[in-house]
Computed example of a mutant assay.
Amino acid sequence: MALQESTAPDPYQTYFEPTVYLNYFKMGQSPVGDECLYFLLKHYHAVFKSGGLKGKLLIDIGSGPSIYQLLSACEAFEEIVATDYTDKNRLELEKWLKKMPGAFDWSPVVKYVCELEGDRDKWAAKEERLRRTVRQVLKCDVHKEQPLEPAVLPLADCVLSSLCLEAACLTEEAFRGALRHLRTLLRPGGHLVLGGGFDSSFFMVGDRKFPCLPLKEKSVREALQEAGFVIEKLETKARAAETLSDPDADYTGMFVLVAKRSD
């Protein structure tokens, strides 16, 4: 995740604990985490399955310590570059990629995606494929005109960002700016895949509250158009009634969209 430049202490670098955040992705242990995860995995599978988006390079913006968002994409792209704003998130992600002791166990999530693809038993092979496909883990800041500077990459066929921008951008102006900056990473005609929540003003990581920008579908559509994108697909889901009382987050719905860079 990225953060707006500020003279105040940096809450993400200082307080965001990736190992606590990863509790959301322990299937069956967090109602909010399960709801978000199943929705996102299902729609990322639909986006990247055979006949869907594919290409040479995908850049994932705001990967956090997570790999769930890349499990379908690694079947469709030759190379993936993961990125994040915080040092601790990048280190935690590297821990899994390099099979280091104490790495998070993603196998239940990987098995679920393999089940979507028709063969749950290939989960170990998928993990290895993803490790081979992720070529770099870089620092990013979506508030910079060149979000990955000083790194220089070829223009990507696809930019993916999952549960990042509403946390990184606390004003509509910042959100619109971030979309313009992400557009510079894409080749003409390339695609942006964006997953997130509607009306979310915060989410919890342990006992620490992190603010969010409460996105509306209308504002997302307008911001994408202004940034030079054409939405090709937008899937939404209202929050389930049984999770409404969960104190970890206050989103009212989820979305996954695919937008094409218009030139």
Rank of each mutant, 00 (worst) to 15 (best):
A8D: 15
V113P: 09
F48C: 03
V193W: 06
E166P: 08
V193F: 08
L91C: 07
A151S: 13
L186T: 06
V134K: 03
R135P: 05
S200P: 03
V134L: 11
G51A: 06
E172S: 12
S161F: 13
A2N: 12
R183Q: 03
V258H: 00
P108S: 14
V256P: 03
P211K: 11
P31G: 09
K237N: 06
F48P: 00
A124M: 14
Y21V: 02
N23T: 06
L213N: 11
F104G: 05
L224G: 03
Q13G: 12
L116K: 12
G197S: 09
A8E: 14
Q136M: 10
R129V: 02
T86N: 11
L185M: 13
P65N: 10
V113G: 11
S6P: 05
K260W: 00
L155P: 06
T83K: 06
Y12T: 01
L213P: 00
S201C: 07
A223P: 02
V81S: 14
L257D: 00
D34R: 07
R208H: 11
D250Q: 08
Y68T: 01
E17C: 05
L155S: 08
T14P: 07
K209I: 03
F202Y: 15
T236V: 06
L97M: 12
Y21S: 13
V159M: 11
N23M: 03
P65H: 14
G55T: 02
G51Q: 08
H191F: 15
P150E: 08
L244V: 04
Y112H: 15
Y12H: 12
L22N: 13
E166L: 12
L155T: 04
Y21C: 04
A156T: 01
A76M: 04
H143T: 06
V113F: 00
V20H: 13
E232H: 03
F48G: 00
L194D: 04
R120D: 10
G52K: 04
V110Q: 10
E117G: 12
L91S: 13
G195K: 01
V113A: 10
S201D: 14
S245H: 14
G196D: 15
A227S: 09
T7W: 13
E235L: 06
R180T: 02
Q146M: 05
F175N: 02
Q136D: 14
Y85R: 06
L160K: 01
R180E: 00
E79C: 05
A76Q: 11
K99F: 10
F203K: 01
F210L: 11
S63N: 13
W123K: 04
L213S: 08
F175K: 01
F255G: 11
V230T: 14
P211S: 14
V205N: 15
H45Y: 14
T184S: 15
L257A: 01
R221P: 08
T236W: 09
V230C: 09
G118T: 07
L234V: 02
A167Q: 12
R208M: 08
C36Y: 12
L58T: 04
V220N: 11
S66A: 13
R120G: 05
L130F: 04
C140Y: 02
L257Q: 02
G62E: 12
D119I: 02
F48V: 01
A103R: 15
D10I: 01
Y15K: 08
K218F: 03
